[in-house]
Design a protein around this nucleic acid. Structure first.
Lengths: 349, 349
DNA sequence: CTGAAAGCGCTTACAG
DNA sequence: CTGAAAGCGCTTACAG
């Protein structure tokens, strides 16, 4: 019975050394001397023999042994609200790519935005001895971040920011502004916002960006025209129902801070016999792959999700290298589609 | 400068032993003696002191050291086509839960269904010394699986099956049959299938289940009414365009083997001035959270995605324990909604 | 019931 | 240019 790790008997540094009649430490030194040349680690000839044999035998160093010795795991932990959220899944793809380029592997866990789970998953990651953490589910009122800071756990935020900690996010305030400009320019004067979860900076910033600009443009927006909601379709649907009930006269445009919420809202509007894009304009956020493919294509603010993931890795790398880091806010752009293309005179006011 | 792992100076077994004035091996034995009692590993009193101190100091064993010693990593590798596919993301949530219950952590990587990447990611996983692999992106013609088998790498398939290897999947053939029964029962006689990727058993089985049952019911279905396609919205849209061009008379119903493809098809139908559910019935597959929330709610075959993920972990656990395993096919159910609720006489034939 | 030793596979000063 | 030793944190027979 083979009790070694997956893949059967694994080649070790010692195997290589024995076969070549040299000392394991020499092999190790060579394999770590960067370039093809031995750079003082060994003679060029020996180095060549070692490298050739390593390739031939398919040697790959045991990360457990390396980690034990170097006290680094080359593991990055990633925590997201849920991977079944397309936005986070896409950011994670960016993380995976960028991490691989730097020689890191990544773990990802779902917290469902539940504070207990956030804490539990974080501890699991640390128990696994990750070198650092990318936190994609930060809450604005989180005590966990303060605690991690105090424990000197290296981490960066992604997707959502919290003042005082380094983060890679979309410029959500700008995104909200773009929507305000667009809707105002199309003649809308009575609008409502499906604002998302108040503990998430994405929701808060997009809403604030929109509302502030709206007021600056000379518009007004009533208290009950801003409805906080979950980020999913069901949440968007409920928020739209609330708006249709509470807002009189009915708004001519809805800004949902998330595409899924926007899709839910579109469903709600349709149930009320309203045609999206004609009776009511709708704009979403993130420009997920679905937006442009919906039966009624959805206008949406495109956030650079892959780049946000990549940027988070770069920031974390800097933290791990002991460098100072600046938070990065990546620019979004607005994609206007059928759901909000018409100017208000065409809308059934 | 603190150069220990994330979280600063970490408590070791030796720290615990020193503080109690006993030998590290005793501490280790106690911490491994399952229950609260010491079960022959040490005196009850010593065991208690050790457990208390371990808790107090927040001791967590170093997985690198444990892994090095035991030659097990307690790591499971998961490979999926892409995590931004809601179906795979949901299965992965099931995996994460079930794996955590068994004390395993999981890695996940995207292969984009590219054979080179499948191979590369697999090697990365093995280099990380995972104990086993859950393969969610298997191709029917894959040489990689044979090779892994030969190398005695422990693995199971999930989502897609390949004859000869253990897998946890939906009963996709049954799913296809359910759709055939439904559409036939509603009076449809002229239908088309958006069949997905021919290398994926999900696509092949769902299509075969549908077509075979359709023929058994006495129906007929022409060659060009079965269109292979990508699984995403764009793929579904293109396939629908092909069908609308090639099939005369136009089918009264479309079965797409994937919800996203179905959504793309709905968009295409709408561009042609056709109303989904009225002019053309559409049925998707998986019943992702979006289906019921779409402006026109989509009929879909609900596959137990979370359970499929959980089951895959259980199967892999059995493989790792050296037990024989049987492939599992979980039952789907059909959810009929507005997109296919009407009987054909109401359709604009 | 507990201790002492060996060793998992690697890296890194330290000699020579 | 290369070897030898020590040690990362743990587990596991083996003694006693």
């Amino acid at each position: 019975m083979d009790d070694s790790t997956a893949g059967g008997r694994t080649v070790t540094l010692k195997d290589l050394a024995n076969e070549l009649g040299i000392h394991p430490s020499t092999v190790s030194r060579i394999l770590h001397s960067g370039s093809d040349v031995a750079r003082g680690a060994a003679s060029v000839a020996t180095a060549q023999r070692v490298r050739d044999l390593a390739r031939k035998r398919g040697y790959s160093p045991d990360p457990q042994a390396t980690g034990l010795r170097t006290r680094r795991s080359n593991l990055l932990g990633v925590i997201v609200p849920r991977l079944s959220d397309l936005v986070l899944a896409t950011m994670y793809e960016g993380i995976e790519e960028a991490a691989a380029e730097l020689g890191y592997s990544t773990f990802v866990m779902n917290s469902r935005d539940d504070p207990d789970e956030q804490r539990r998953k974080t501890e699991t990651m640390l128990a696994r001895r990750v070198d650092g953490l990318i936190i994609g589910d930060a809450h604005l009122d989180s005590g966990l971040l303060r605690e991690l800071s105090a424990r000197r756990v290296p981490f960066v935020l992604m997707n959502r920011r919290v003042p005082g900690y380094p983060s890679a996010t979309c410029d959500d305030v700008l995104g909200g502004r773009l929507v305000a400009d667009h809707l105002w320019g199309n003649g809308h004067r009575n609008v409502a916002v499906i604002a998302g979860e108040p503990y998430a900076s994405t929701a808060v910033d997009r809403t604030a960006g929109f509302v502030d600009r709206w007021l600056a443009l000379g518009g007004s927006i009533s208290q009950n025209a801003v409805v906080w909601s979950r980020f999913d379709t069901a949440g968007g649907r409920e928020a739209a129902e609330t708006i249709l009930t509470d807002c009189n006269p009915r708004p001519t445009a809805l800004f949902a801070v998330n595409d899924f919420a926007a899709i839910g809202a579109m469903g709600s509007l349709r149930s009320h016999g309203l045609t999206v894009g004609h009776d009511v304009a709708v704009v979403g956020f993130n420009d997920t792959s679905l937006a442009s493919e919906l039966p009624i294509p959805l206008s949406s603010v495109r956030s650079p999700m892959l780049d946000i993931g990549r940027t988070a890795v770069q920031l974390l790398k800097q933290v791990l290298d002991g460098e100072r880091v600046e938070s990065m806010m990546l620019k979004p752009i607005l994609c206007v589609r059928e759901s909000s293309a018409l100017v208000v005179p065409s809308l059934a006011l």
